[in-house]
Design a protein around this nucleic acid. Structure first.
Lengths: 336, 336
DNA sequence: CTGAAAGCGCTAACAA
DNA sequence: TTGTTAGCGCTTTCAG
């Protein structure tokens, strides 16, 4: 299985390798006649560029790296899909890595991507603090934009959703549905999404006069298991609130499932909301009211920022783009 | 942002680049003293190998490519997680690609992986027929093992689950639960999983004397939407069967959801089963009885086959490894 | 045990 | 417009 090289194409077309390179890459002057001969020869031989040789020469790979906290979380996979779609239009490849919610793994992946000379990195950081060193390091070496979450103390581009606005939408809706007390089930405050959503929750609840028992703010992780466990705890410890605001759809799915097994009626006894609008949110029982993240927009902006960063030599001021989310009303809440 | 090269390490250690290479890669004789000096210099300078240069020289990348039909399908993402886990133990990286259920995209990804000199490819093919050319081509260039599904007419290693055995488990269980008529909701017969599951279904149903109305074999795609649509069709066209066997969990989740909205009691009126045992199967209402695929085993075997294939020069006989699945009984069926 | 030198496949000066 | 040449960073003969 021999790999055809540019030299063989050159020989067959009767020109030099430089000319072949110019003809095939389309930059550099080539006469129409020679161009034709070269393309012909390349086609005959079944020539394909060797991206590795090209990368070594150019230190560019036309590849973007992406690192997400967990490929098992449907929100991130759909974000990946959006990003890949945008990149494809630019003829770039995506190199996807899973950090397995572990800053150490994440650091390895970032280093490896940088070593592989990807043209830029799109990262949704695993941890708001522990990810800092690796992120700063990677950002110092190549263009990097953070997605959805960001690491405190880093100074890179970021694009995500306005969590505070989202919480406003959610709480206003719950309030309209009659909620006067509320609980919050989220993840440990180890990432920005979690923090922003919780603080947005507290703020709007206060403004609306919705009571939040500190004991009913439960922080675990972004998973259905945690949602189930947290609801069990709420049931055990006291009277249920009118509404339970969850930091993401996985948690909310766990909560509604636990409500079913505990005989708690959703939304009649307690309203429940999610966050992200993953596909499965529709399928819960009841279907989840949630906040939709404009993934395609997020992906587009991220790629745009990356492209801009690779072109500008001067590190221009960094951008923080917070997109406005949309409330998706379904059966797990009462207001229309 | 300058990248440290082997030459700089050599200069600092007062040796040649060849010696540095030998010391750092650990092959080739190096005196203890020199070895220490080199490592010291490398550490001081923060040297990291350039994987691109190494790949160009060695035509090996320590990277395995993986192509799945859809990264949005949780079954495939969990398979990816398993594979990555196994590879990590061997110090290899995974390059993941999404074929978006499109043989044309898949072909591009395969070609691109081959061009990038990955050491091998793990593929779950999108289409049983249309994927053939690209798969054969890729398999001719480097080690390739198919996972879960396979393309007819190709001759590569394969590892997956014994679909026929799985259908036996499912139908025996449904039969024990009293089912005497059954429907099948699957995807178009464009991939082997689909075909095998359907034929396994028919065979065991016949053996057990379970009646299958040809009109109740509905083929669409692996998605919740299709599950919902198919159930609506079953409801519209006639008396429901005692059981609905779905070709994967996504379909089953759609079916149970539609059952709720159509007021069909699961499992009292109709039993429903899924396939794959994705995380969300537990969360449906009712929780899904399904068949668990031993993902970790599948991943392990796949990587093992790949490694074997890269080492043997002679293309040994190809292996087809069908692992035995396990029935997971939950609330969507009646037998215990 | 170590160094010199060639070369993986490609592209960008520089010359012609 | 085209060819010659050097070199990206690394590994591996081949001499010493």
């Amino acid at each position: 299985m021999h790999r055809v090289t540019i030299a063989e194409v050159a020989a067959r077309a009767g020109v030099s390798t430089a000319t072949v390179s110019r003809a095939l890459s389309g930059r550099g002057p080539v006469s129409a006649e020679v161009d034709r001969r070269v393309r012909r020869a390349a086609a005959d031989l079944g020539y394909e560029v060797n991206p590795i040789a090209r990368a070594l020469r150019n230190s560019r790979t036309d590849t973007v790296g992406m690192v997400v906290p967990s490929i098992g979380n449907p929100f991130f996979t759909s974000l990946v899909e959006s990003v890949e779609h945008v990149l494809e239009r630019q003829g770039k490849q995506l190199f996807l890595c899973d950090a397995r919610s572990d800053p150490a793994v994440e650091a390895k992946r970032l280093a490896s991507l940088a070593a592989r000379n990807v043209d830029g990195i799109i990262l949704s950081p695993t941890h708001g603090v522990d990810s800092a060193a690796a992120v700063a390091d990677a950002a110092g070496r190549l263009p990097l934009v953070q997605l959805d979450r960001f690491v405190s103390g880093t100074n890179t581009d970021w694009v995500g959703v306005d969590d505070t606005a989202a919480m406003r939408l959610i709480l206003d809706h719950l309030h309209a549905g009659g909620a006067r007390t509320a609980a919050f089930i989220g993840s440990q405050q180890t990432n920005s999404s979690s923090e922003q959503r919780l603080s947005g929750f507290h703020r709007r609840a206060a403004e609306l006069g919705i009571l939040v028992d500190p004991a009913s703010v439960l922080l675990g992780e972004f998973s259905t298991d945690w949602g189930e466990a947290a609801l069990a705890r709420l049931v055990a410890t006291g009277p249920l609130p009118d509404a339970i605001v969850c930091a993401d759809d996985l948690i909310a799915l766990g909560v509604t499932r636990a409500c079913r097994s505990h005989g708690v009626d959703v939304p009649a006894r307690v309203q429940v909301t999610g966050f992200d609008n993953i596909d499965f949110a529709r399928l819960g029982e009841p279907a989840l009211t949630t906040v939709d993240q404009p993934r395609d927009r997020i992906a587009e902006e991220a790629v745009r920022l990356l492209t801009a960063a690779s072109q500008a030599d001067t590190r221009a001021s960094t951008a923080h783009i917070a997109l406005v989310p949309t409330l998706i009303v379904r059966a797990s809440t009462t207001a229309s």
